[in-house]
């Protein structure tokens, strides 16, 4: 799978993830799907609703957030194509927790944020869950 993300949208994600540090942050990816290419048209930040003391390693959004953004995507002629979140102080690789709460056909963009004197995004990777739920495969992330 190829994931195409505009440089300015990537910078927006980076800024949000740095602001959330040392907690996790995240949001939805709206875009279009054409064959094996997902093109991200917009990113929508969603507040982390996990218990405050767990937010350093957990991120969650409500079902109402999903319903609202799915309806918004439809209204804008877009598709809810994925979601993004950060991994503070750990690699941009899906965890077992990520896999247990994931859906296939949905792009997962993970940003690793590390404190290198100040919080900085050090890596962004895109992933897709296999249909048999066994593991994620890396997508090719193209920044345009």
């Amino acid at each position: 799978m190829n994931v195409v993300l505009d440089h300015q949208l990537q910078q927006r994600i980076f800024a949000e993830m740095v602001e959330a540090y040392p907690n996790e942050g995240g949001g939805f990816l709206l875009g279009t799907l054409d064959g094996d290419t997902v093109s991200i048209a917009d990113v929508v930040h969603i507040s982390n609703t996990f218990e405050a003391e767990e937010q350093y390693h957990r991120y969650a959004m409500t079902p109402q957030d999903w319903a609202r953004l799915e309806d918004e995507a439809d209204a804008r002629g877009l598709t809810l194509v994925g979601y993004y979140h950060s991994h503070p102080n750990s690699p941009a690789i899906p965890s077992v927790y990520d896999r247990d709460h994931a859906l296939p056909n949905f792009t997962y963009i993970i940003t690793s944020v590390q404190n290198t004197g100040q919080p900085s995004p050090v890596e962004m990777r895109a992933w897709l869950l296999r249909a048999d739920r066994s593991q994620f495969d890396a997508s090719t992330l193209k920044i345009t």
Partner: peptide
């Protein structure tokens, strides 16, 4: 059917 998105490390 509405998923609750969640993630973590």
């Amino acid at each position: 059917i509405i998923p609750s998105i969640a993630g973590g490390n």
